[in-house]
Design a protein around this nucleic acid. Structure first.
Lengths: 249, 249
DNA sequence: CATTGATATGCAAGAAACTGCAAGTGTGAA
DNA sequence: TTCACACTTGCAGTTTCTTGCATATCAATG
């Protein structure tokens, strides 16, 4: 294993969990703690992380992502986002829209992955800026300061020019009969989501279980149009059947 | 087997697995490790990959030079940006491009002012998010992580649809004869700046005095096309005359 | 056909990088 | 304060790299 591979893996762990620990890394790699310490010091020298007694933490605070991580593994959004990153196929063109889960999703993306990502979310773009091998294409339009996304006709026009290998949608409400829907103040996002679903070869919806069996005002698409519904934990057989076996975790 | 075939195969392995290893390649090709090393060094020379101890990894694009520039001439930039905000006419449609001075300009904008701002700069958008009466229109395109702006054809197309009351440009080099110009790695920004100048009723260039009488690689426009050159302090009458009385402070 | 020069490859010796160990120092929690 | 653990530093063993040189291959040329 190359030293650089190790460094990347260390960064993956760091981004995923918000910290790394010398002892654990040494065990993972079956190397001496000295070597791990040297690695961490080197990465610190590059300004990528901050060394602390016993391990290291990310260099810059990632406020939003950090808040969600605070409750560690039991945070639904964290779990969903983390699982979703595992479904991303390297070298593909993917679309990511706005929302806190999506921002988390971006922040948990492995450092080493090569991808092209199209997004209209400022926080997503900001997170992906740190990934050297991810090309980001940002969709322009009116800046919706509330959702920190761009919206409107311009976004729509630009989006039409893509066909995605995968798209990852944040969800507000998912229902077996009525499909995916979003609530009132998000009509702008709804048309974007609709187009994303249409223009993607594979549609993934990130959705903590609490959002299942919910209906909102603006319907995006039916469950048939969706390939995967990513939840944070296993669901009952009945529920799974109701959602046509599309729920995964 | 030709050397080029081997190189191609090395690159295939590199992209497929994210790394290559001298030992393994030597075994695959039944060649000495020296030859593989020479191959890798050659490919590195072409900028295709990055050589590391024991093998090679994909060439990672270099991020974040912007942060380094931020602290250069901090006070001068502050003065220039501050003065520029005083020239903004409320209720107008203005364009702001990328750069550290422009970010400062955005952050110094009065909270109460009513405006519509078009920009391709992420930091500018982020600053203006805090101004409730400023509508921001963000130009989409490829995310240039270096300059933290969007660039490319898409930006250009969107920009064509506007005509601005004012535009505020960051400057790298301003010269009486040769006009405004930007240095090498900013060719992407240059075409955007050029269009901004064309499509604005009033062109303001923010420019600390140290950038006067400088010439860079990509010329944007002549001094005639500019309405104001905003500097941090008064200049001599000769200099003022040379720049057609366009310098203000 | 023999010669020549450019390119590619392998080998060997010394240099440099990586890693683990040990001894001494520093840190933080009880 | 004490104590266990983390850290730093220096060193040695191993692996990889660089460099110079010898050999092989091949195409062009006389």
């Amino acid at each position: 294993m190359l030293k650089e591979e190790r460094h990347q893996h260390i960064l993956d762990v760091l981004y995923a969990s918000g910290k790394v620990n010398v002892e654990e890394l040494a065990y993972d790699f079956r190397l001496s703690k000295d070597t791990i310490r040297r690695d961490l010091n080197e990465l610190e020298g590059q300004g990528i992380l901050k060394r602390v007694y016993g391990g290291a933490i990310p260099q810059k605070r990632q406020p939003l992502a950090l808040d969600a991580r605070k409750n560690l593994e039991k945070n639904e959004k964290y779990m969903v986002a983390k699982r979703a990153t595992g479904l991303v196929r390297p070298h593909s063109l993917i679309a990511v829209d706005g929302g806190t889960t999506n921002t988390l999703f971006a922040s948990l993306m492995p450092v080493s992955i090569t991808l092209r990502v199209v997004t209209n979310s400022f926080p997503v773009a900001e997170e992906l800026r740190k990934r050297p091998n991810i090309d980001v294409i940002f969709l322009g339009g009116r800046y919706n300061k509330e959702s920190q996304t761009t919206v409107g006709e311009t976004v729509y026009q630009q989006l039409k020019e893509f066909y995605f290998d995968q798209c990852f949608l944040g969800a507000f409400a998912v229902d077996a009969q009525n499909g995916i829907s979003v609530p009132y103040p998000y009509e702008d996002e709804s048309s974007i989501k609709r187009l994303l679903v249409e223009n993607s070869s594979e549609v993934n919806v990130m959705c903590s279980c609490s959002k299942l069996n919910k209906i909102s005002n603006y319907v995006i698409c039916s469950i048939d149009a969706v390939d995967r519904i990513i939840c944070e934990h296993p669901v009952t057989k009945q529920l799974q059947a109701k959602y046509k076996n599309k729920i995964c975790w």
